[in-house]
Simulated assay, not measured.
Amino acid sequence: MLKRGFDLFVSVTGLLFLLPFILLLAFLIRTKLGSPVLFKQQRPGLHGKPFYVYKFRTMTNEKDENGTLLPDHLRLTSFGKFLRKLSLDELPQLVNVLRGDLSLVGPRPLLMDYLSRYTPEQARRHLVKPGITGWAQVNGRNAIKWEEKFELDVWYVDHQSFWLDIKILFLTVKKVFKSEGINQTGHVTMPVFMGLEEKGRNAPL
């Protein structure tokens, strides 16, 4: 109840306080990157239950001569990189927190396709509500390997507390200002997680 109450307080306060800035960002994104302004994708929540996560878009819709979207690194503009660098693209997720899909702190919600690729131990990351930030995000973010990320997520599941959440939030602010761990070498964010059978493959998200 304390965690949910804190989530509600921060999400409501944040949305009200940041509304003018959020509207300005939406206008700039529409002008520089096109529409839709929001990126919407289904992700697994608590116990793997699907929900739609919202983010500001950071890439254009540029396509090749065959009508196929260009690779992510070619569609990610300098403005999009700026949004990601300061995690401004995550601001719409305060709505997800308000709705109860996300918590402020918890394992990051990944792709639905990954659910069948986890080991039983890795799947324990879904025993708590996913979050905007988490223990893995303040201990490497996208610069660490998937296996390390999942180990950190499961550690959080086993050690979660209100004060640990507060610590993670403060560390998140520090990481954002230092712009640490945004990308993994050679990728816009992280390579696709293929599970144990195809471990090591490098396809961009």
Rank of each mutant, 00 (worst) to 15 (best):
L94G: 01
D7T: 03
F177R: 02
G48A: 12
Y118A: 09
L205T: 14
R108F: 12
A136S: 12
K174Q: 14
L46P: 06
R84M: 06
G67M: 10
L127A: 08
G80N: 09
V154W: 05
T185L: 11
E148W: 03
K63E: 15
L28W: 05
L98V: 02
G200T: 00
Q122V: 03
Q184F: 12
N61L: 12
Y54M: 13
R201N: 03
P204K: 02
R75F: 06
R84H: 03
L169M: 13
G131N: 06
F177S: 05
Q41G: 11
D165W: 00
L98M: 07
S103A: 11
T31S: 13
G45Q: 02
L110F: 02
R75C: 08
F27D: 01
T185H: 12
L104A: 05
F162R: 01
L127G: 08
T133W: 04
S161Q: 04
P71E: 03
H126V: 04
F162M: 03
T119G: 10
F51Y: 13
T189Y: 00
L19I: 04
K149E: 13
L33Q: 09
P109R: 04
M190D: 01
R124A: 10
T133G: 05
R4L: 08
E148F: 00
F162K: 02
V12L: 14
A203M: 05
G140H: 07
N142Y: 07
S116V: 13
P36F: 12
F9W: 15
I144M: 11
V10R: 05
R43Y: 10
K149C: 14
S161G: 08
I22G: 04
P50E: 07
G80T: 09
R4E: 07
K85H: 01
R117A: 11
R30W: 13
Y156Q: 07
Y54G: 06
A136P: 04
T60R: 08
S11F: 01
E147R: 13
G106N: 02
K178C: 03
T31W: 14
V192Q: 07
D153E: 14
G5N: 10
R108E: 12
A26G: 10
I166G: 00
V95T: 06
L2G: 05
E147W: 00
L76D: 11
H187C: 09
Q160H: 02
G80Y: 06
P71Y: 00
V173P: 01
L111K: 00
D7K: 04
K3Q: 13
L86G: 01
I168A: 03
T77H: 07
L86P: 02
D89L: 07
K63D: 04
I22D: 00
L171F: 05
E90V: 04
V95L: 15
L69E: 12
G181M: 11
N66E: 08
I144H: 10
T60C: 10
F21I: 15
A136R: 03
E65N: 12
Q93G: 15
L115R: 10
T77E: 10
E180C: 06
L94F: 13
G48S: 12
H73W: 11
Q137N: 07
L110Y: 01
D64G: 09
R99S: 05
G100S: 04
N142M: 11
L2K: 08
Q137G: 05
T77P: 10
